[in-house]
């Protein structure tokens, strides 16, 4: 590792962190009730009990924290999956993993499991759904070598279709009351008033980032292909299992708390790869932080662009991300030699 490269990485991280802070701060003061930037500190110090205080710290701050945790989690999951599948267009949403998590959480809602076993069973079911889909993808595309990398995306889209059909099936046999709950939840929002959930979400998301660094060099080696990674002394099967579990936990967590938010995991790592290359030592942490900033930005946009109406944040990321996806595919010949 040359010193020049370390400097470049440090500079990039500093830039992303700075941008993250600016976006978060703006997100704090912009909204239906704009708060002067200069007032934020005085409100924080002596404004307890005022309306401004509760807007800042009971409504907007939790959203920013959720945006941070979930944006980071989705983007990290995307970077990891792109590394393992060696395909720059995969992410939890395009592979149908989000769909699987959605189905898991809906089952939980319909059968009232969270009512009897507590709210934390929601992320657990999200995880199980996501993990199930990853297992299907894995056994189809990698183990037997039946489906090549391009087929992988197609399989993911099909899994999404199947899971949304199953979701409709669930919706059609459920009671009106549960139905409303499901629809409301699928629309997705970073609005979360339960501080226990917010803290758990932050902890799990950051833990995912830290854990992924244990084997991040394995991801680098895997980029050369599985046999090649084996030649470099990597226990390929073990590290794939490890990363599949991390990606499932991150996706399950995000979907169960904020609904389906598409494409964050695609755009952010994809863009960063163009700038800094494929070294996962910098890619993972920068994807996480940039993904966090990106989602906070999109969320701020979604609640201000049509104010007082609030759009689901998935709509904003879907439009930006979907357009980007098409652009990326059309340029793939240039970017990804394969």
């Amino acid at each position: 590792m040359s010193i020049r490269k370390k400097k470049k990485w440090a500079l990039l991280l500093a830039g992303i962190v700075l941008a993250l802070f600016i976006i978060s701060f703006l997100s704090l003061v912009i909204g239906t009730k704009d708060i002067k930037i200069t007032d934020v500190f005085s409100i924080a110090l002596n404004g307890k009990g005022t309306t401004e205080y509760s807007i800042l710290f009971d409504i907007r701050l939790p959203r920013i924290l959720m945006g941070f945790a979930i944006g980071g989690a989705l983007s990290l999951a995307g970077a990891i999956l792109q590394g393992i599948f060696r395909n720059p267009l995969v992410e939890p949403y395009t592979l149908g993993i989000s769909g699987g998590a959605t189905l898991g959480v809906s089952l939980n809602l319909v059968f009232g499991i969270s009512r009897s076993f507590g709210i934390l069973s929601m992320p657990l079911f999200g995880f199980l759904g996501a993990f199930f889909v990853i297992l299907i993808l894995y056994s189809l595309s990698l183990k037997k070598g039946v489906i090549k990398m391009n087929g992988l995306l197609l399989t993911g889209v099909m899994i999404s279709f199947v899971s949304s059909s199953l979701l409709m099936l669930l919706q059609s046999i459920t009671t009106a009351e549960d139905l409303q709950g499901i629809i409301f939840w699928i629309m997705g929002s970073l609005d979360e008033s339960n501080w226990l959930l917010i803290k758990m979400c932050l902890c799990v998301s950051i833990a995912g980032l830290l854990l992924s660094y244990i084997l991040c060099l394995d991801l680098n080696a895997l980029a050369l292909g599985e046999e090649e990674a084996l030649h470099l002394g990597i226990s390929v099967e073990r590290s794939k299992r490890f990363f599949f579990i991390i990606a499932s936990v991150l996706t399950g967590l995000s979907v169960s708390l904020a609904g389906v938010i598409a494409f964050v995991g695609l755009i952010v790592p994809h863009f960063l790869r163009m700038f800094i290359g494929g070294d996962h030592r910098i890619l993972l942490v920068s994807s996480y932080l940039a993904g966090a900033g990106f989602l906070i930005f999109c969320d701020t946009l979604s609640r201000t662009i049509a104010a007082p109406l609030e759009l689901p944040v998935g709509v904003v990321t879907g439009i930006i991300g979907g357009s980007f996806f098409v652009y990326a595919i059309s340029r793939r010949g240039l970017l990804w030699e394969n």
Partner: peptide
């Protein structure tokens, strides 16, 4: 091992060669 098919990944030559030190 030097395989027949050499995957290029998203790497520069230097980064690629440096991978040999992973073990």
């Amino acid at each position: 091992v030097v395989s027949q098919e050499i995957e290029s990944a998203w790497l520069t030559v230097e980064e690629y060669i440096m991978m040999g030190r992973i073990p």
